[in-house]
Design a protein around this nucleic acid. Structure first.
Lengths: 205, 205
DNA sequence: ATCCGAACCGACTTGCGGGTCGGTCAAGTG
DNA sequence: CACTTGACCGACCCGCAAGTCGGTTCGGAT
């Protein structure tokens, strides 16, 4: 049906622009009209496609945010090599401010998590689910790295995953305005140092 | 003057309760009436003491939050000993959920930073200032630790401070609901590992 | 006793933003 | 051509919360 196509097209435009503006200004600080004006759409159009602002955002989370996290943070982990440099690369890449005109996708998680925490349990839940998936994948790739001899046996993989996630999320609060080159560089350097401490100690001859 | 005393007393009560509730529910999700009801005060009383909600929160930041951060995160750094375990202790202590009936002060910074970022530049500014002071103090104690031989010479103290702050702030996003014992334990453990990599290499005999 | 002004009260105004609803338009369908 | 239906329009409704303002209370100064 052509009608369905049109409909999907509009929903896609709404979700895309919504993510962009919510990411820029925050969910509660963005009115629907802010978005609708930019798309030259009306309230009526919006409520034809979504049953509420909340429902709308959940669509965005499930369609777009999940994808971005997978693409940037989870799929890169799928490797046979030493996982530690792979993780560094994925984090460095995810912290990269929007290439060209795109958004700084890597930043969204911490912002949204904090914004919805204690304000909207349902949305919070979806966001935490994403974090959990990430964590599980990190743990699994770390354990694999241990088996393959890239990581020392004494290492607590769950703890490492937690620490990685915490430091990554926290960088967001620091890089707020200026997508500061310097901060990112410092972060990556220290992450590498930390990772070095996870490597097996070379046996002294 | 007794009048002035009464006035101060009321302002203190307002600030204290305000911090408590803003910390619980967020600034924008808390109405003045939420606070005033609990204190059995009126709008009139409030606007007699503060010129706006924003002005009110700035008072809270400058009177209470600054104090907490100093007490928990900055003053403990004032030591002649090895700074690394001191830093671990201060962070562990700051992540401790409210002892007895007090608030979980250690959590506030990341929440408020994220909430005001891009919504209120002035308040954002005050909060960033606090972070900056913390960072400066961290850097200085790290440099001192380097001089005293507790930290390896190659270490980038600014980078380490950034990384410490990032991981601390990020823990907040993870510890949202459950002030999860496990998470905190993992964090402290990994922090210690990381710090070990900053120590000077013992010279092999 | 009188007055002043600080502290406080609470009904009201105002603006914002989510959500509603009756309507228009155009693309099928029979 | 008559009729339906999906996509969309935009004026309106309504609740919420910040901020206003005229009034009240009360301690202390003259």
């Amino acid at each position: 049906m052509e009608t369905t196509l049109k409909s999907r097209e509009t929903m896609h435009r709404l979700c895309g622009k919504g993510l962009e503006i919510f990411n820029e200004k925050g969910y509660y600080n963005t009115s629907l009209d802010d978005i609708l004006t930019q798309l030259s759409l009306s309230k009526g159009a919006f409520y034809h496609h979504f049953k509420s602002k909340e429902d709308y955002f959940i669509s965005i989370v499930q369609n777009l945010i999940v994808q971005k996290v997978y693409a940037l943070l989870i799929e890169p982990l799928n490797t046979e090599e030493n996982p530690l440099p792979i993780i560094v690369d994925s984090l460095e890449n995810a912290l990269e401010p929007g290439k060209k005109n795109e958004m700084a996708y890597g930043f969204m998680l911490n912002d949204f998590l904090t914004e919805f925490n204690k304000r909207n349990e349902e949305i919070s839940g979806y966001l935490k689910d994403i974090l959990n998936v990430w964590e599980v994948n990190l743990v699994s790739v770390l354990k694999k790295g241990k088996l393959d001899g890239y990581i020392a046996r004494h290492v607590d993989c769950e703890g490492v995953a937690t620490y990685i996630i915490a430091s990554y999320l926290g960088m967001r609060s620091l890089m707020m305005d200026s997508s500061n080159r310097q901060l990112k560089y410092q972060y990556v350097q220290q992450l590498k140092h930390y990772f070095k401490s996870l490597e097996p100690q070379p046996v002294m001859a």
